[in-house]
Design a protein around this nucleic acid. Sequence first.
DNA 1: ACGGTATATATCATTACAGTTATATTGTCG
DNA 2: CGACAATATAACTGTAATGATATATACCGT
Lengths: 111, 111
Amino acid sequence: MERDVFSALADPTRRQVLDLLTRRERAAGELGRAFPQISQPGMSRHLRVLREAGLVQVRQDRQHRYYSLRSERLAEVDAWISKYRGFWGTELDSLEAYLDGSKKAARGKRT
Amino acid sequence: MERDVFSALADPTRRQVLDLLTRRERAAGELGRAFPQISQPGMSRHLRVLREAGLVQVRQDRQHRYYSLRSERLAEVDAWISKYRGFWGTELDSLEAYLDGSKKAARGKRT
DNA sequence: ACGGTATATATCATTACAGTTATATTGTCG
DNA sequence: CGACAATATAACTGTAATGATATATACCGT
């Protein structure tokens, strides 16, 4: 179990699945139909990878399984990439401002 | 060439290399020595993957090759993950803590 | 040019992964 | 119960990624 989040994100189909889930939760079959080039078991496996990475959660309603996003792991990825934000401009400042705290944040990282 | 950024980020060693490069540029050998469990050619290949993904650039000085971060692709990843930022709107605490403390990294934080 | 250092490529074995077909599980309905 | 729908797992296949050893290329000092 315990699957790596970054590895889960490495597959373009899985990233597209996550994109679809930003709108609303979706049943497994609905997601499968959104990718006609992939078989039903294939999609089921992708969903399992996303599940084991903690990127999605499932809610079972009758014979349907509804997938939706889980924020925690996505936030981890965001936290990781945020370390590099100082390298492409001043976006960090706006983020800093957004974080009201202004407790210091990672400054002085400009080359 | 054109290699997928997310696939390049899927490997933990390569992510650690990027982490090292946030501080300053480093020679290939310096990076290799930071990972004793990986052979010199192994590190060279990791660096190639990062290069082909556009995540790093190389500057050659004498017999040394100095690797440093390239912001463009990292910014792409950041743009992608930003689509999900609305999903943990008020739960930005983890990110805040990450930028703030930097001592107790937010990675490995089980929820 | 020679020997040493720094780094990359070639080749090969092993492993991981995406995709397929077939089958199993679980739930619904008549 | 029997048939069907929704989803997951099993077994297999081809491909790509990883890591190691050996070798090649490039640069430096003497």
